[in-house]
Design a protein around this nucleic acid. Sequence first.
DNA 1: CCGCAATGGAGGTCAGACCACAAGTATACA
DNA 2: TGTATACTTGTGGTCTGACCTCCATTGCGG
Lengths: 255, 255
Amino acid sequence: MARTKQDDPNTHRTMRVVNHIRSLIENGTLQPGDKIPPEREFARTLKISRASLRTGIGYLAAMGVMKVRHGVGTFVADGPPEFGKASLSLMGALHGFQSWQMFEARIILESQLAALAADRGKEEHHAALSEEVAEMFASIDSPSDYLIHDLLFHRIISQASGNPILAALIETITSALYDKRRKTVERSTDLRESAEMHREIYRSIRARRPLEARKLMEEHLRMAQAAQGMERPAERKTRADGPKSRRGRLTGVAS
Amino acid sequence: MARTKQDDPNTHRTMRVVNHIRSLIENGTLQPGDKIPPEREFARTLKISRASLRTGIGYLAAMGVMKVRHGVGTFVADGPPEFGKASLSLMGALHGFQSWQMFEARIILESQLAALAADRGKEEHHAALSEEVAEMFASIDSPSDYLIHDLLFHRIISQASGNPILAALIETITSALYDKRRKTVERSTDLRESAEMHREIYRSIRARRPLEARKLMEEHLRMAQAAQGMERPAERKTRADGPKSRRGRLTGVAS
DNA sequence: CCGCAATGGAGGTCAGACCACAAGTATACA
DNA sequence: TGTATACTTGTGGTCTGACCTCCATTGCGG
């Protein structure tokens, strides 16, 4: 750890760019949503070539700190923080992450998040949650619509937890899980049951009962996990390390 | 998966590169530690300019999927997965992450991790933990040495948990916290007490008592947090949303 | 008043030359 | 003979400057 070794007026230009922007952000000169100068101009300012500047920007963009819009400009990320979505899925392929592991992580984080939300949630959050629950019941016949409100519901809880880091972590995992889910929701049944669970979670959060919220959320997620056939495989000595073979008939239910 | 819309001979070259490499990794052609072809050659193969190829590689490198070594070559990351350290610290500055939030995330994750480790840890892990505990007691008079074994101890627990995703998450947070810690450990006292706690955690893990391990880990971390003056500030109606002002005098003790 | 084409600003890509670094190999000197 | 220095080669890093593509705005024509 400790990259230290920058500042040598010669160090990798790309790091020069990164550090420059970092300082601009850290001292508040650059705020989320701000636009940075056009590449050509900025490059001239920093006394480096446009190519190098682009490398640096690319680096920051990859980490989700900056957002580049072709034909418009480059901006400091403004939305909710999100640790490179691509990162997790690639790392997954790279280190053989399994679906059940992602789900396990999600269960642990989100249960705890629900507890925090119950403890710290504000009226605005309660209102938003209430609304999403209503929307869910309203779209019980439209899986894809249902999924949207489902996602929103969970995202609101993240925000209500008051811990943006945990929220970002969850967001990363969720988005990685999203693709798989989208394909299964279509055929899902029992959306009503799912909606009921969400309503109960909402109620316990509103009533500020952390332990109950945590328990309900955990139950809810475990059920969703089972519905998607992503349980942790039973212990077995023979580990078929072939990275394929899963993908049973998922009868998914939304989470 | 499914960025859908690739293959259009025009889609962003950088994504073309990313997807190409992604597939190479996913189908096992590229394994961790492997070296990819020289830029010039690879660029020719992919029918794109070297510049574009570099952009893509830079992207992957930023996410920690690839590691570039000047004058040597570009390789697929091999070490333990780690979600961009820079990412978290930059995001921190960007979205005003607070130290107590990082610590909260750490406590939640690591407590749970300890429980999982107690549940799934294998003999090899127990042995490694035991050794680190011994080393900790042995280096009680050398804070910097102590810190090393402290870190290792926690890392082993991560591995023992059997969930690489959670391990990677923790790793990210820990490394972000590391810098602050390193500065404070020097002046720390009570390393003996800290070592005792680690030993108890080790014992409960070895005895496969998940709940106890979780409880001990949580206590341990809360204590460390308190020692570093990173508790969550008391509720206050007036939220000074100015993203500055933190950074008190930390009197840390190792975690 | 509306729709569509022209225009300018900004990012995206390209090509090829040249620089910097790391490692191996050959050469020169003690 | 042994070791140290210099050269060669392979690979990433940076620079130029021209050209392409996208998008938003502007303004003309219907």
